[in-house]
Simulated scan of single mutants.
Amino acid sequence: MDLSTLLSPDCTRCAVAGSSKKKVLELIGQLAAPRLSGTTSFDVFESLLNRERLGSTGIGLGVAIPHGRLGTANKPVAVLLTLEEPIDFDAIDNQPVDIIFALLVPEEEHEQHLQTLAAVAQRLNEKSCTRGLRDAKSDQELYTLFTDKDCP
Rank of each mutant, 00 (worst) to 15 (best):
I28N: 03
I28K: 04
Q30G: 00
Q30Y: 00
Q30N: 04
L31F: 03
L31C: 02
A32M: 09
P34G: 00
R35D: 01
S37N: 03
G38I: 05
G38C: 01
T39V: 09
T40M: 03
D43N: 04
D43C: 01
V44P: 00
V44G: 01
F45M: 05
F45Y: 14
S47I: 00
L48A: 06
N50Q: 14
N50R: 12
N50C: 06
R51T: 11
R51I: 08
E52S: 10
R53M: 10
G55R: 10
G55P: 12
S56M: 14
G58T: 14
I59P: 10
I59V: 15
G60M: 12
L61T: 12
I65S: 13
I65D: 12
P66E: 14
P66D: 14
H67T: 11
G68V: 00
G68F: 00
R69D: 05
L70T: 02
L70K: 04
G71R: 07
T72E: 04
A73E: 04
A73K: 03
N74M: 03
K75N: 09
K75H: 12
V77D: 04
V79A: 06
L80C: 09
L81T: 06
T82P: 05
L83H: 07
L83T: 08
P86T: 07
D88Y: 11
F89S: 05
F89C: 05
A91C: 14
I92H: 09
I92M: 13
I92G: 08
D93N: 07
D93L: 10
P96M: 08
V97S: 05
D98V: 02
I99S: 10
I100L: 14
F101G: 07
A102S: 15
L103M: 14
L104I: 07
P106W: 01
P106E: 06
E107L: 09
E108S: 15
H110N: 15
E111A: 15
E111R: 15
Q112V: 15
Q112P: 11
H113L: 13
L114H: 11
A118E: 15
A118D: 14
A118T: 11
A119E: 13
V120H: 07
L124Q: 15
E126A: 07
S128D: 10
T130W: 03
T130P: 05
R131D: 12
G132Y: 01
L133I: 07
R134D: 08
R134E: 11
D135Q: 10
D135R: 05
A136E: 04
S138T: 15
Q140H: 12
Q140M: 09
E141M: 04
L142F: 01
T144L: 04
F146W: 06
F146D: 03
T147N: 07
T147K: 04
